[in-house]
Simulated scan of single mutants.
Amino acid sequence: MGLSSILMIAGIAVIIISLLFKDKSARVEKDVEDLSINIYQETNALKRRVKALEEELLVEPNFQVRKPSSVQQNSEQQAAFSSFQQVAAQVKAAQSNGTAPKVNPSKSTKPINGILVSQVLALNSQGLSIEEISKRSTLSHAQIHSIIANGGQQ
């Protein structure tokens, strides 16, 4: 037997052995595909939740904030108020970027959201100017003057 026949037999043996082992790249590809689908589904679910929250913040005019009856509720209200300010700033940024429909509150005849009323009153009590309150609350100067003049009563 020559060297060439030994090499040929060794090559055939290696091919047969490689066929017996499972291909792990197919398993990795399936795992990556499953992960990709899961991420896509979670992203869509998050987008739906954000859209629902934006609609609640912009559409719900009858929402009223209750007065706290204890110190713990007051701290919770302050935390909620600060998170509302962050969300309002994000919505305003999204509106200025053109990703959300712009609403012109000065031409709107809808009542002003209770959260915005309490925000305006809180900012006014902190001594901020009408211009600063307008920037933070997305309301017009006339609406802010009206809220301050009425003391939050609509």
Rank of each mutant, 00 (worst) to 15 (best):
S4D: 14
M8C: 04
I9R: 14
A10Y: 02
I15T: 06
I16S: 09
I16H: 03
I16D: 06
I16Y: 09
I17C: 05
F21H: 09
V28L: 14
V32L: 15
V32M: 14
I37S: 08
N38L: 10
E42M: 10
A45I: 07
R48G: 01
R48E: 10
E55A: 08
E56N: 11
E56V: 02
E56S: 10
L58P: 01
V59N: 11
V59F: 10
E60S: 12
E60N: 15
P61G: 00
N62A: 09
N62L: 14
N62F: 13
F63R: 15
Q64H: 09
Q64N: 09
V65C: 04
P68E: 07
S70A: 01
V71G: 00
Q72H: 01
Q72R: 05
S75K: 02
E76W: 02
E76Q: 11
S83G: 00
Q85I: 08
Q85V: 04
Q86E: 10
V87T: 05
K92E: 13
G98L: 06
P101W: 04
V103F: 10
V103C: 00
V103D: 06
N104Q: 10
N104P: 06
S108D: 15
T109V: 08
K110G: 01
P111H: 07
G114S: 09
G114Y: 05
L116G: 01
S118F: 03
S118Y: 07
V120L: 02
L123M: 11
S125A: 11
G127Y: 07
G127R: 06
L128I: 02
E131L: 06
S134L: 08
R136G: 03
T138G: 02
T138C: 01
T138V: 10
A142W: 00
A142F: 05
A142Q: 15
S146E: 14
N150W: 00
Q154A: 12
